[in-house]
Amino acid sequence: MDAITLDNITKTYNKGKVLAVDKATFTVAEGEMFGLIGPDGAGKTSIFRVLTTLLLPDGGSGTVAGFDIVDQYKEIRNCIGYMPGKFSLYQDLSVEENLKFFATIFETTIEENYELIKDIYIQIEPFKTRRAGKLSGGMKQKLALCCALIHKPKVLFLDEPTTGVDAVSRVEFWEMLKRLKHQGITILVSTPYMDEAVLCDRIALIQDGKILSIDSSENTMKKYPGRMYAVHSLNMHKLLKDLRSYPDTLSCFTFGDSMHLTFREDNDGNVTRLNEYLNNIGHTNLEIKEIQAGIEDYFIKISEPAHG
C-alpha cells in the first residue's frame, strides 16, 4: 500500500488568482523517504498543508496512510507527524513541557515511545528545563522533530526542516531521518538544497506548482542529456561573460567555485577549442574537466529551457 497518494491535486489562493499547486500527482511508498525539491515559492508548503489536512485542495484527491485527505481528515491527524517550516512550538514552555503536551494530546506518554525519539532527545535532554524559545536553531529543530514523532506517526511530514540550520546540524539531521526510515516511518521531506536531495530514495522536482520530474536521485542525475564540464579560471566574472558569448555554448551557470558548461554539440574537439579560445582572450589558470551533472544542473535544465 502507498503511504501517500496525490491525484491531480490543485490548490489556488486569492479566489483562484494565484495557482500554488498545479495538478500534482505522485505516490510515496510505505517506508520510503521522498523529497520535494524546489525553490522558494514552488508550492512545496502548499502540498504539505493539503496533505496534513490544514488546507482543502481545490481539485483532485489524495490519501495519507490510506485515508482520504478531505473526508477522513480526523483519522489522518491521528497518524501523522508534521514539522512546519517555521518553528511552531510553545516558546514559553520548556523542552520537556512541550514534548509532554504533544504526547498527552495524542493520549500517549513520553515513556511509551521513548525508543523512537531516544537518539534525538538525548541530545536536547540536558536542556529539558529550558524554555523552547531560548534554544538554538539546531536544538529547536531537534525538539520539533521529537514533538512530531512522540505519538509514533506512520507518516512524517517535514517542511524544509534544515532551512536556517548550520551545515553540521544539517548533516546530523539527515542522519536522524535515515534512522527513522529504518524504523519503517514514511517520510515526505521538502528542501531547497539540492545536495540533500541525493539522500532521499526518490525525489520530485517542483517549480511554479508543477511537478517536473519524479525519479530516484541517481536516475534524475543520469537523465541529464549530454556532457557537462566544469570550467575554472582566475577571473571568474569575465569567464562567465566570455563563456556565455562563446558560440558553441548551450548553457553556462555559476556553480560554487566553477562554471557548469554544456556545448551545443558534444564532440571530442570541444574542450581543446574552448581552451584555445579562452587562452587567446587572456584567461589564466584555466581548468576544464568533464563532470557528472548533479540534480541542480538537471533542475536548471528542465526549469529554464529558454536559456538553452
Binding site: 496534513t52 489536512t53 490544514l54 480526523k74 491527524r77 491521528n78 501523522i80 508534521y82 512546519p84 517555521k86 518553528f87 511552531s88 512550538l89 510553545y90 504533544f102 494530546i105 495524542f106 514533538c147
Partner: peptide, 10 residues
C-alpha cells in the same frame, strides 16, 4: 504558528 501544530493533532 502553534495553531498549525495544534490543528494537525486530534
Amino acid at each position: 504558528g502553534t495553531i498549525e501544530q495544534i490543528n494537525v493533532t486530534p
